[in-house]
Simulated assay, not measured.
Amino acid sequence: MFPDDDDALMEELRRAAAVADPVPDLVLINARAAFATRDLDAQLAALVADSLAAAGEPAAVRGPGEGESLLLFAAGPAEIDLAVVERPGGLTLIGQLTGAEPTGCELERGDGHREPVEVDELGRFLISGVPPGPLRLHCRVAPDNLVVTPWTNV
């Protein structure tokens, strides 16, 4: 057999197995839940300051029309300052990670979509066109230390 024949055979076997013995829904649900817990060792950053809460607005009612809000998250020596600014075409997130050397950051939205965040040598980042809704940041601040902000509705 040639490699192309192997690929075709494997695809045919996948189709046959899917018809004859499909994966049960409960298995799929549990697999997704297990995948969602892959960051259990992450250190959860605490929200230590919120400009809307300081103004008497609970964070849970954050929504359109707020203009700009400032958030500060902390986990050990690492801090994430985040400004959320309303702009045409979506929200702009302007932030800085201090107290650690970021080796990689991601923005996770409520729909599960994750996108890499470019962080410069001073820990600054800019993310444009973010749709309103829940989000959180994942920042690796050392090879074995992942910091994750709590879900925040913007």
Rank of each mutant, 00 (worst) to 15 (best):
F2E: 12
P3E: 06
P3V: 09
D4N: 12
D4V: 11
D5M: 07
D7H: 12
E11W: 07
E11K: 14
E11T: 11
E12H: 12
E12Q: 14
L13A: 06
L13R: 10
L13F: 11
R15T: 11
R15L: 10
A16G: 10
A16R: 15
A17L: 11
A18G: 00
A18T: 02
V19D: 02
P22M: 00
P22T: 02
V23H: 00
D25A: 12
V27Y: 07
V27E: 07
L28E: 11
I29D: 11
I29G: 04
I29C: 06
N30E: 15
A33R: 15
A33M: 08
A34I: 07
F35S: 14
A36L: 05
T37F: 10
L40S: 14
L40A: 14
D41A: 14
A42W: 09
Q43R: 11
L44H: 07
L44A: 09
A46N: 07
L47S: 05
V48G: 06
A49R: 11
A49Y: 04
D50F: 04
D50S: 15
L52W: 10
A53H: 12
A54N: 08
A54R: 09
A55W: 04
G56Y: 04
G56R: 01
P58N: 03
A59C: 10
V61E: 12
E68P: 06
E68R: 15
S69W: 00
A75L: 06
P77I: 00
A83H: 09
V84A: 09
V84F: 03
V84C: 08
V84R: 12
V85H: 04
E86Y: 02
G89E: 01
L91C: 05
I94K: 14
G95R: 01
G95N: 01
Q96R: 13
L97F: 13
L97E: 11
T98V: 08
A100T: 10
T103C: 11
E106N: 08
E108A: 10
D111T: 04
R114V: 03
R114A: 08
P116W: 05
V117W: 13
E118L: 14
E118I: 08
V119Y: 04
D120Q: 03
D120W: 05
G123H: 00
G123I: 00
L126E: 05
S128E: 15
S128F: 01
G129L: 02
P131A: 04
P131I: 03
P132N: 04
P132G: 06
P134Y: 00
R136Y: 07
A142K: 09
D144W: 07
V148W: 00
V148F: 03
T149W: 00
P150F: 02
P150R: 01
W151I: 01
